[in-house]
Design a protein around this nucleic acid. Structure first.
Length: 611
RNA sequence: GGCUCCGUAGCUCAGCUGGAUAGAGCAGCUGACUUCUAAUCAGCAGGUCUCAGGUUCGAAUCCUGACGGAGUCACCA
């Protein structure tokens, strides 16, 4: 419709006014809510160019449009804006088209593959609120990309090696006394996290003791900068202490060395403990309703990439310093020189990532790869993508960093050291309790069986949590108030579910088959609004996919639900004035339910039939 | 210090490819359940869109600068 209006306007301007105009350049918008009209054409640019009165110009174009388009009913010109009203028949036809398409909004398969990486946890501690945002975003973007035509491969890389997991291993060996998740009844990831904390606590104590020892004091006196307090010095010196003085540190490093050397006992322990963590993660993923199509493990990939460094050196993309370290100059990208291989020949993060991208492309042929990683790594991914481009990777332009802001608490940043991290499992449990309390005051749920109740409450709780997080634009840092996120009223997931449930309820009470409603005329305002909203759905999907941002879709679902609630309140459905009106409204409701259900599904949110 | 992102109502957020009087929800105050589910609806109140310039017929939106916040600039991952 927009294209048609643009075309006619451009023709009129070009032919009648000798004012050559590109159709694309004509500004056509949806008319503002409180103004009469459906579409609005902005006249100012031509008023100025032609030196014509806006009213006259608007009339000329308006006449032409109403004459040329059978779907255009009338027009009005207001303050330089030409508003076009469309006929009821046009909207009824729109609804009919939507109604005839059972997979409305879903695009033809485009034959392209896209790999979406998300979650990517470390195996030394459980998932937290930050992971939840990551997972919900990654999952939802995957779903949306699938909906607009891609074949999506959902993947994650598990950071299962390195010094961190060695700390947990060491603590478990020393203080675990053979305990297992099974013997203690603790979820595997939490179990490992416990030993990580155990290590850190002991290390802290050890460090504290050392600071007061003669050696510690001597080091402080010898190495401190001017005016530096002991507290500041020791804070900065912590890593150094771990590497050079700490008994615990040297034991942990010893475990890491043995792991890298393939020491059977260490590797076996590592496998066993990581398996506990994976089992724990799986439970959380399951609760979140997400799954993966493939997995990568850092233990398999951390040595990758060196051969690409060699090739890059040959091509002259990289250069070698005297000490043997390899670098790339990214100053033309407004980035610095970046190290890609250490002087001792071992890899850094970047080396691995180069190797991993190449491996993934070789394995899947995906032309697009999306990395769901927090915005603190913006710089890293910019550099990685620039490097791949310089290396001449054919898919380099298809690489995308789905960068999202950190989640803050009302009290500030989440800090694991200060124990202010919100654990994913605990949070979900809290939301479930809140949903249960909320539901207790409502009528319908009480009549269900215990099993049904639990199922419905679970859906409501998940909807509340997921919608709260997904409605915020991904790039934006967001504040997560545990209390507010538990809200079930207003701009929330349950509000949208409630609209769906209302429709489901009406449909249950409807008797007999759905009849034709061609004779229904005189569309009501609330009905018009709903059809207009429904018609926007495909373009919303497309823009969510283009921007890798589900918040568009989330807000759309809310708006659609809101329009429905209003419609529901203003118009009778089952007891409508005429049979035609009744069937029209039922059809309309069915279409709203269809879109709400699908849209929310793409956000990873399930709809209950009752609540 | 360089670079990147952010700054909209008391709070949490929409709106940002320039268009009419800047929108929701929460919190506060009014009203609406004998009538398809009140997890709903209607209303009141709440704004210097951080500030200052610029471009434009028109700027929350684009540009420049300042201020405030965050991130990053590791032979860490």
């Amino acid at each position: 419709m927009i294209a048609e209006l643009q075309k006619i306007t451009a023709e009129v301007l070009s032919e009648k006014f000798d004012c050559p105009t590109e159709a694309d350049s004509v500004a056509v918008n949806y008319t503002k809510d409180d103004i009469d009209g459906d579409y609005t054409i902005v006249l100012f640019p031509y008023v100025k160019r032609l030196g014509k009165n806006p009213m006259e110009l608007g009339k000329e174009i308006g006449e032409e449009i109403v004459g040329a388009l059978s779907t255009a009913k009338s027009y009005n010109v207001l303050k330089g804006f030409l508003n076009i009203n469309l006929t009821d028949a046009y909207y009824k036809d729109l609804l009919k088209k939507i109604s005839q398409d059972p997979e409305y909004g879903r695009e033809e398969r485009n034959g392209k593959k896209v790999m979406v990486e998300f979650s990517s946890p470390n195996t030394n501690k459980p998932l937290h609120l930050g992971h939840i945002r990551n997972i919900l975003l990654g999952w939802s973007v995957s779903q949306i990309l699938d909906e607009v035509g891609y074949e999506v491969i959902k993947t994650q890389i598990v950071n299962n090696r390195g010094i961190a997991i060695c700390k947990s291993m060491l603590a478990w060996s020393a203080y675990g006394e053979g305990a297992t998740p099974e013997s203690t009844g603790i979820k595997g990831d939490h179990f490992i996290g416990k030993y990580y904390v155990e290590f850190e606590t002991r290390f802290k104590a050890e460090y504290k003791t050392w600071q007061e020892s003669a050696e510690g004091k001597a080091v402080y006196q010898a190495s401190k900068k001017e005016e530096q307090t002991a507290e500041a010095f020791f804070k900065a010196f912590k890593n150094n202490y771990f590497n050079t003085h700490s008994a615990l540190g040297s034991k942990a490093k010893d475990v890491l060395l043995k792991w890298e050397a393939g020491d059977t006992a260490v590797v076996d322990q590592w496998k066993m403990m990581n398996d506990w963590v994976y089992a724990g993660f799986d439970v959380t993923y399951d609760k979140l309703g997400v799954s993966f199509d493939s997995m990568y493990y850092e233990s398999d990939t951390y040595l990758l990439g060196k051969q690409h460094i060699e090739q890059g050196l040959e091509k002259g993309v990289f250069y070698k310093k005297d000490d043997g370290s390899v670098w790339i100059d990214l100053e033309d990208q407004k980035l610095d020189h970046k190290l890609v291989l250490r002087s001792d020949g071992t890899s850094v993060y970047m080396t691995q990532d180069i190797g991993t991208v190449e491996q993934r492309y070789a394995e899947t042929g995906a032309e697009k790869m999306v990395y769901t990683v927090a915005d603190e790594q913006d710089y890293h991914f910019k550099a990685l993508f620039a490097i791949m481009k310089k290396l001449g990777a054919s898919y380099a332009d298809g690489l995308h960093h789905l960068s999202y802001g950190m989640v803050d608490l009302p009290t500030g940043k989440m800090k694991s050291r200060e124990g202010t991290v919100v654990d994913a499992d605990v949070l979900m449990e809290e939301v479930a309790v809140e949903a249960k309390n909320s539901a207790a005051e409502k009528g319908e749920i009480a009549e269900m069986s215990a099993e049904e109740q639990a199922e419905v409450i679970d859906r409501i709780a998940k909807a509340a949590l997921k919608f709260f997080i997904l409605r915020v634009g991904a790039k934006k840092r967001m504040v997560f108030d545990p209390k507010e996120s538990l809200d079930m009223q207003g701009q929330t997931g349950p509000y949208i579910q409630n609209a769906y449930v209302r429709i489901a309820s009406v449909l249950r009470k409807q008797e007999g088959d759905l009849a034709q409603h061609d004779t229904y005329t005189d569309l009501q305002e609330e009905e018009l609004v709903l059809i207009q909203e429904l018609a926007k759905y495909p373009e919303i999907l497309q823009s969510s996919a283009d921007n890798y941002d589900p918040s568009n879709l989330a807000n759309y679902c809310y708006n659609l639900a809101k329009s429905y609630h209003r419609f529901y309140h203003e118009q009778r459905i089952l007891t409508a004035e005429t049979e035609a009106a009744k069937h029209f409204r039922i059809d309309l409701s069915v279409q709203v339910a269809k879109v709400l259900k699908r849209g929310m599904f793409l956000l990873g949110i399930d709809m209950p039939e009752r609540m």
